[in-house]
Amino acid sequence: MLRKFAAPKIFYPLAGKLMPWFFWTFAVLGAVGLYWGLMLAPVDAVQGQAYRIMYVHVPSAWMSMMIYTSMAVSAAAVLVWRTKVAEYWLLCSPGLGASFTFITLVTGSLWGKPMWGTYWVWDARLTSELVLLFIYFAILAMKGAIPDRRKAARVMAMITVVGFVNIPIIKFSVDWWTTLHQGDSIFRKGGPSIAPSMLVPLFMMALSFSSYYFWLVLKHIRTLIERSAA
């Protein structure tokens, strides 16, 4: 079963069928989420308008970790089974992952200036997210340095597996150590500490960003399959 879907011949048309669904989910939820987050959601009692940065910051941060996790799963498949589609997934993901990590760092910094009073501090959360950006860069560098795609994927898989230890560190850094970065507002005991009227657009943006990732990764994989067939 699993192997069947992992064959490029099966995967190619399947990806083609899924892409429009992901595109429209991204476009519609993104448009509604943007309007809701910027225009309809109320002002925050403490932070004023600046809290609206969270509608791009938080989904990007989730994406930076989710993309890496999907890469780690692909990496295991690459190392154990040499699955071709997993190789493609690994080749096509780190660019998007690095992009979302970059967005997370810059938007967080723009929020930090008016809220904390500083653009940057070396606390555990901020530092581990920066480390994630460097890990993505290392994986991308391997893709650029090794011309043979299958060999490149295998080396990228090894770095991905080693770098995966950073993901739980990012996630739990705010619980394990004292940080300037606040704790989790959503996945916490007793439910989210965000008013429902502010939470709905956040989930919309998160779903929109995930669909965007799946849309583009499928598009990119299809390009690779086309080229290896040509």
Partner: peptide, 27 residues
């Protein structure tokens, strides 16, 4: 030499409806 504000991870509008207040207090 430097003072940084820490955010409490709570997001809420300045004036909440009674339902919202109840929701926020429950969490």
């Amino acid at each position: 030499d430097q003072v940084l504000a820490k955010h409490d991870a709570k997001y809420q509008p300045p004036e909440m409806t009674p339902e919202m207040k109840k929701y926020m207090q429950a969490h």
